[in-house]
Design a protein around this nucleic acid. Structure first.
Lengths: 100, 100
DNA sequence: TTTCAAACTTTGTCTTGCAAAGTATCGCTT
DNA sequence: AAGCGATACTTTGCAAGACAAAGTTTGAAA
């Protein structure tokens, strides 16, 4: 009916799903912006970002502008994985309309 | 941008999301059918069903036909909660198409 | 009454989320 | 130079939860 095995657990967790969704909307997000938007603690956010980075889904860029600033972006792999994840969500939505 | 707080944790967990999705497709499911479809262990499945039942999302019916058989169905509350959950999924899908 | 299957419960393990507090690094100010 | 504040992380500790395996209960059929 639908492939629950395909629901990538790395992405599915609430906090990381939030991160991935935000990253999908823009080429790049700063740590501070992610934190403000998602209302996560530093430690929690960093941990989730590291998990996503370890999975190869997120690229990290450190620069020092005015202040030190770290930016995050989807990798090609991450974008693909996320699209597959979204495809499962669409399956769920479609399946959930009771068929006549 | 979208409401992550609305992502009901009771529903969001992978196993329970599977259960809710199946329950949304039919008026009623037997324990055995859920188990077969979701490939979960007895203990795991029962625990998730109890969690959903405790949350008021799922109704339980025990009857004895040929064999004892327990059936599960969405409550009105569960159906509503699930629809709200799906609405967030749709927000995520829409937000994830990078806007031009 | 032995047997079988359904539907639990119990037990134990292991992972994970999460926050709070601490640390390192860099600019800016005085 | 010394101190200050912000960023970005690390560490620590706890609590919750997923999950499987094994045991238990219940009812029906043989």
């Amino acid at each position: 009916m639908f492939d629950f095995e395909k629901l990538d657990k790395t992405i599915h967790e609430k906090g990381r799903l939030g991160i991935m969704t935000l990253l999908a909307t823009r080429p790049s997000w700063s740590f501070q912006d992610l934190k403000a938007e998602l209302k996560m603690s530093d430690g929690n956010l960093v941990t989730h970002l590291r998990t996503l980075h370890d999975a190869g889904h997120v690229a990290v860029t450190k620069e020092i502008l005015d202040r030190p600033q770290t930016s995050y972006a989807l990798t090609a792999k991450g974008r693909k994985a996320f699209q597959e994840y979204l495809a499962v969500l669409e399956q769920i939505i479609n399946a959930s309309r009771p068929h006549p």
